[in-house]
């Protein structure tokens, strides 16, 4: 339990640090940090009862994207603004790195294992983000079409 709390706090700090690097405005830094923490909490939660990597990463990414969409809607900024710092805890940097190490050192077993895991994590991440942005785009287009009364917008 203590380990999980530490992980959440560290994820908040990692997202906060990257938010500074990505030039998120000072008043929004706290939301970026909270996003990282929320993502880690749900990641740990899904990890504890879903054995399939692609599923628990996709669900965590969906939560991260949802958080980014909601906060960016309140703050009137594009979703990407909070999405990038929020997704930091989910980036499979270590798996990708070990995959390349396996490739260069001709360690087939290491390469295969990490390549599969890394691909699953990346696909899961993308699916989570795409599903969320697809749904929010549809909602935005409908809202826009209602306000403007211009059905043409639906092509975008």
């Amino acid at each position: 339990m203590m380990g999980n709390i530490e992980l959440v706090v560290l994820s908040v700090l990692a997202s906060l640090g990257f938010a500074i690097v990505f030039q998120v405005e000072k008043k929004d830094l706290i939301f970026a940090g909270i996003g990282g923490g929320v993502t880690r909490i749900f990641y740990l939660l899904f990890l504890s009862f879903i054995p399939n990597r692609i599923v628990y990463v996709a669900l965590s990414a969906l939560i991260a994207a949802l958080f980014a969409e909601i906060v960016s809607g309140i703050k009137h900024v594009p979703a990407t603004y909070f999405m990038y710092p929020t997704m930091v805890p989910l980036i499979p940097g270590d798996l990708f790195y070990y995959m390349c190490v396996g490739l260069i050192t001709r360690n087939t077993e290491m390469f295969k294992l990490n390549a599969i895991e890394c691909t699953l994590a990346l696909v899961g991440l993308s699916v989570g983000f795409v599903v969320c942005s697809f749904v929010s785009n549809i909602m935005r287009i409908r809202k826009l079409a209602t306000i403007v009364g211009n059905a043409e917008d639906s092509e975008y």
């Binding site: 640090g17 938010a19 500074i20």
Partner: peptide, 15 residues
């Protein structure tokens, strides 16, 4: 920015 990097890297290092 450097401070941001250090905070992020220390957190990831601990993870």
């Amino acid at each position: 920015q450097l401070l941001g990097y250090i905070v992020a890297m220390i957190s990831l290092g601990r993870i």
